[in-house]
Simulated scan of single mutants.
Amino acid sequence: MNRLPRHAAVAVFLAFAFAYFISTLLRAVMATLSPSLSSEFGLQARDLGLLAGGYFIGFAITQLPLGAWLDRYGPTKVVLAFLTMAVAGCAAFAMSSGFVSLLGSRVLIGMGVSACLMAPLTGYRRWFDAGTQMRATSWMLMTGSLGMLASTLPMQWLIPHVGWRVPFWGLAAMVVLSMVVIAKVAPKWMVPAPSSAKGGFPVRAPRRKGCCQVTAQYGVIRISGMSWSWASSTMVPWWPFKRCGLGHGLRK
């Protein structure tokens, strides 16, 4: 496993982080687009909900084969192939003329960006040392949060000036730019020759236990806790905080 020098590691991280930034922006942008789509196509709340969920439908479709493809072909080839679908999805969304085409475009976008996080994390385990991997993973999640923020006020400011279609052409161009940068800076992925035991099954080293396992579990707990803290903030009216006075003033 060849570790990258610092300047190359920074370039690789920025390239993949830029693609992940776009993916999370596309994930959350439906909340900002809802008024424009409702007025133009006469969509109801159930239609808008399905459009938002179309992203996750496409995202989920690719998850089972994604891991095998990452190991076989490497993160660069996989993410470039997937981002091609994202470009097509953004262009199709910008040209949509009805609910069906909007939904199909959202599904295609979800499929296209579904490798934007797991592909770089797969590469980081070879390209970065252990400490850098932890920092890079945290920074990737932070970049995703910035993408969600970019889908709110910046997009809301932009839509009245240029409409909702032009930003998607711009997003398609940004995805193409990220593909060019990734193809230029990402290292080649060397697939190791698998060693096999009887029956042709690959031989794997036994998993280590102890501090490594505890650290991994602690990281999962931290990420899960962060996600639940965001989700629970929208569920305050449903929790019985009023009994102890903790939710006083939160319903205003």
Score class of each variant (00 low, 15 high):
V87G: 07
L83D: 04
L246K: 02
L43P: 03
G144I: 04
G54L: 09
S39E: 13
S34R: 14
A28C: 01
H161K: 10
S138G: 15
T76L: 05
Q217A: 14
A115E: 03
A31I: 03
R208G: 10
S196P: 00
V185D: 01
L102V: 07
P75I: 09
C244W: 15
C244Q: 05
T234I: 02
G245I: 08
T84S: 15
L48W: 07
T215N: 07
P5K: 06
K242W: 12
T137P: 03
L102W: 08
A205I: 03
C116D: 02
G67T: 03
L250F: 14
A92T: 03
P187I: 11
G200I: 08
G199W: 12
K184A: 15
M174T: 03
L70C: 06
A183R: 15
G170I: 10
R165W: 10
Y55R: 04
W189D: 14
M174Q: 07
A92Q: 06
P187W: 12
G49I: 09
V175M: 06
P206T: 06
I109R: 09
L4V: 07
A17F: 09
V113G: 01
G112C: 07
K188S: 13
M134C: 02
S224T: 10
W169I: 12
H161G: 00
G58Q: 05
L80T: 03
S151Q: 00
K77M: 08
D71H: 10
P194N: 06
I223D: 01
P192D: 07
G49W: 09
L108Y: 06
K188F: 04
